[in-house]
């Protein structure tokens, strides 16, 4: 069992937890992910590692409840335990490897974080700061109430630009607009990391292709085991089929087939919707899910 030692609600619908997981903190690096299971026979939920403390043996995760399983996770409190918590999985971010540090130091790096994607961007920016690399971070959300980690990011980013789609805080516009604005103002970048919803990573990649900035994205497709066994997370990258869990999760954003990846995200929408409805309504559920026949 894996104890929750800290829990915070970061924004309207975004939660942070520190979870005691010595086997994960023993070797994890920025860019990797874990799989958490809230209770026995629960779903395996992959989440990118947002921070870690090797001495306290805790891993920080940030998540937004979207289905029955993640809703259940929000009900866990400090002192409660995840039934299972396994990792680190996937490849670490190449930017955050000691052996690449000399190369990395030469680069002008810009991070574009969207929504919950801010969380996995944070450990990379922090790791780079600790290794003497200043970076530009553009972090955006739909609206002010959904922003989080602004103060934390301020401490580790060389330059921080906060954007909201509705203009309620910071720059009025999307991350792509902000990036274009920085380039227009004469700033130049030779490496971009974009993490967020697939649609956002797609548009950042389209822009950076035009701007000729090499771009890494962190893909979060549907997964089951996360160890390379099931193939659910397969993606088309260039001409190849890649498994996000073992080959990724980070890939060249200019090679990923985002449209197909987004179509594949729809595979279980109907089943997941039913499960969420059944979970939220519990015993009071009397139909409307199109499945149980209770409304017929």
């Amino acid at each position: 069992m894996y104890e929750i030692v800290r829990k915070e609600q970061l924004a309207a619908n975004i939660y942070l937890m520190d979870v005691k997981a010595p086997r994960v903190t023993h070797s994890c690096l920025p860019g990797q992910f874990i799989i958490a299971i809230a209770e026995e026979d629960g779903e395996r939920i992959p989440l990118t590692i947002c921070d870690y403390d090797r001495e306290k043996e805790t891993v920080t995760i940030v998540f937004q409840p979207i289905g029955a399983s993640t809703l259940r996770m929000t009900e866990l409190e400090v002192g409660d335990c995840f039934h299972d918590f396994v990792g680190p999985l996937g490849q670490p971010s190449e930017l955050c490897l000691e052996e690449n540090l000399e190369e990395t130091k030469k680069k002008n790096i810009v991070f574009v974080a969207g929504g919950v994607g801010t969380a996995p961007v944070y450990p990379q920016v922090k790791w780079l700061k600790e290794h003497g690399v200043d970076t530009t971070v553009i972090m955006g959300s739909r609206t002010k109430d959904l922003l989080f980690f602004v103060d934390e990011m301020e401490k580790v980013a060389g330059q921080l630009c906060v954007t909201t789609d509705d203009g309620s805080y910071g720059f009025h516009g999307m991350g792509t607009d902000q990036l274009q604005a920085l380039v227009d103002a004469g700033q130049s970048f030779d490496h971009c990391v974009a993490i967020g919803p697939m649609i956002m990573m797609k548009f950042v990649s389209l822009l950076t292709k035009k701007l000729e900035i090499p771009t890494i994205v962190s893909m979060n497709p549907i997964m089951v085991d996360g160890t390379g066994m099931c193939g659910a997370c397969r993606l088309v990258v260039g001409d190849e089929i890649k498994f996000a869990c073992v080959d990724g999760p980070e890939f060249d954003g200019h090679l990923v087939d985002f449209d197909q990846a987004m179509a594949r995200m729809q595979q279980y929408k109907t089943e997941e919707g039913r499960k969420k409805l059944a979970y939220e309504e519990g015993d009071t559920h009397h139909g409307g899910c199109g499945h149980c026949g209770g409304d017929k």
Partner: peptide
């Protein structure tokens, strides 16, 4: 794996097609 390990056949939280 969805059906057996995750018990999707019993209508657990893990979906199956």
């Amino acid at each position: 794996t969805r059906s057996n390990l995750m018990k999707a056949y019993e209508d657990s939280d893990t979906p199956i097609s």
